[in-house]
């Protein structure tokens, strides 16, 4: 009798523990833990997009086998005001292509380093559970392709980046991007989605090629950037490149920060974020003015456009916006509702 009770007492916590282990708090409303989800069908090549575009939502589909192809390049591009800079990229753009998958997907990532590259490159995806996030498995010499497969276990918005030594230089030259792992059933529908990624750039004049800017090691170590930019170029979200929405539409921004060094205080002037997926995770906070996005981190922000106008996106560490380029615009068109906002001119008497 005593023994039975003892066994009962001993096993009860065990059962409770086992149960609690099975319940993964990351998968609210999920039927199965992600690790047990079966990825169906033959592998398909995933759609990837350059900023500010994002691929189509996953919607209601089940877990699949996907192939993501990325190419690493070293190339000249314009950083600001027709000034060229030697960028290093994933898929020829800064930030690199947006990857969109869902929990339970099995992803084969092929990383090809262009033959004309001087250096080896690799990829560490923060969405990956496994050594180095794939960095060691994807170390690609110039002209070579590497590959690894991972299962997406945790939903969220994650940064990926090159982790080849010296890593601050690879990131400082633009080797980062975002991968979104949607939960089962997908994220709630919105009208507009955009991809924005901040990065800090440290430049000096090339000693070899006139007019070209290159990475400055000393400025990077001092964390004193010349440029802090959205989507790798001054004015990438200004003028003809403004992102656009209409009054009444809901907007979701996938905002990442590649760094390598600065933390972003992301703010949209004249808007309040209805929802912020804090740090790109599953906790949703409401009515946020400015959200912190760490280097190597991300956030999903959502708001409804209630009034027309140009809304300025900034890093609210404002010298970066005012002097170093961390500025963009969202143009909202539609009917003005005086109840929401009404500017009055008080005439002089």
């Amino acid at each position: 009798m005593k023994l039975k009770r003892l066994i009962l007492i001993a096993t009860a916590p065990l059962i409770v523990t086992t149960y609690s282990c099975k319940t993964n708090p990351n998968q609210t409303g999920s039927t199965k833990p992600a690790i047990d989800m079966v990825a169906e069908g033959n592998p398909e090549v995933a759609e990837v997009t350059g900023a500010p575009k994002v691929p189509a939502p996953v919607g209601n589909r089940g877990p699949k086998k996907l192939i993501v192809n990325l190419v690493t390049t070293e190339m000249e591009g314009i950083i600001a005001d027709s000034i060229p800079y030697t960028f290093w990229t994933f898929n020829h753009t800064v930030p690199g292509s947006f990857i969109r998958i869902r929990v339970g997907d099995e992803v084969t990532l092929n990383l090809k380093n262009e033959a004309s590259s001087v250096l080896p490159h690799n990829i560490d995806l923060h969405a990956v559970t496994g050594p180095g996030g794939g960095a060691a498995a994807t170390s690609s010499a110039p002209g070579k392709t590497t590959s690894f497969t991972f299962k997406a276990l945790n939903p969220g918005l994650y940064v990926y980046h090159c982790a080849a030594p010296p890593v601050p230089m690879h990131i400082g030259n633009g080797m980062y991007g975002l991968i979104l792992v949607e939960p089962e059933g997908g994220l709630p529908k919105v009208d507009k989605e955009f991809y924005i990624m901040q990065g800090d750039f440290y430049t000096k004049a090339s000693a070899i090629k006139k007019g070209l800017l290159e990475f400055d090691n000393d400025k990077a170590v001092a964390e004193n950037p010349d440029y802090v930019l959205f989507n790798g170029k001054k004015g990438s979200l200004l003028g003809a490149n403004m992102i656009e929405a209409k009054v009444g539409e809901t907007v979701r921004l996938y905002v990442g920060n590649g760094g390598p060094n600065l933390t972003s205080s992301f703010h949209v002037i004249g808007e309040i974020f209805d929802n912020v997926y804090l740090e790109g995770g599953s906790t949703i906070s409401h009515n946020i003015q400015t959200t912190m996005i760490p280097a190597g981190g991300a956030a999903i922000v959502e708001f409804k456009c209630d009034y027309p106008g140009e809304y300025v996106l900034v890093d609210h560490s404002l010298s970066r916006a005012f002097n170093k380029g961390a500025i963009g615009k969202l143009k909202v068109t539609g009917k003005a509702d005086a109840k929401v906002f009404n500017a009055k001119t008080i005439g002089s008497h």
Binding site: S116, V118, N122, S139, P165
Partner: peptide, 25 residues
Amino acid sequence: IMNYAAFMRFALRGSVKANFAIANL
């Protein structure tokens, strides 16, 4: 730690296998 050039050489060496042929090696 400031010798970024050396980091690059060692990164390259770490990324190659003995049968690799590379355009700048």
